[in-house]
């Protein structure tokens, strides 16, 4: 059966609650899915966390507890060289990472990673989830 597939991003009423920098002036982040497909290249300011940045740009990263380190829904995978420059996750974050899907050695909670100059150019991989079914970007409009 040929499946018509769709990628429709979440219509968040509230965005990330952060300011987008003037294009070309911010720190760069690239979001990819598990298969390495590019989702979006975005820019953010120093101090913004990855969850808020994802929400600002409508990237499909959940934040069920809204950044209070009480869930694992904003789990992201970082490249080793960027992971290494970050301070170690604290106990609370590790407790939540324990329960993350597809945990890796360079996994973090997106809400706990704040952008710095050292992280400029980072690639953020969203772990395997259920978002694989809807892939080709076609938009549904039944009205």
């Amino acid at each position: 059966m040929e499946l018509r597939t769709h990628q429709i991003f979440h219509d968040l009423c509230q965005h990330g609650g952060i300011e987008r920098p003037e294009p070309g002036t911010g720190l760069k982040l690239t979001f990819k899915d598990t298969k390495g497909n590019l989702l979006q290249e975005v820019e953010a300011n120093e101090g913004d966390d990855i969850l808020s940045i994802a929400h600002e740009y409508d990237i499909d990263l959940e934040g069920a507890c809204e950044g209070s380190v009480a869930c694992s829904t904003c789990h992201v995978i970082l490249p080793q060289e960027y992971y290494d420059v970050l301070p170690e996750p604290d106990d609370d974050e590790n407790d939540m990472l324990d329960m993350a899907f597809g945990l890796t050695d360079t996994s973090r909670l997106g809400c706990q990673v704040k952008m710095t100059k050292e992280l400029d150019g980072i690639t953020v991989t969203l772990p395997a989830a259920t978002r694989n079914m809807f892939v080709d970007g076609e938009c549904t409009s039944m009205s």
Binding site: T5, H6, A64, T73, T130
Partner: peptide
């Protein structure tokens, strides 16, 4: 809660793809 969410998204996507 995260596992319930993942499960729910999977079921929602089945419902939508069956419907489509």
């Amino acid at each position: 809660l995260a596992s319930t969410m993942m499960n729910a998204y999977n079921v929602a996507e089945t419902i939508v793809s069956d419907w489509l």
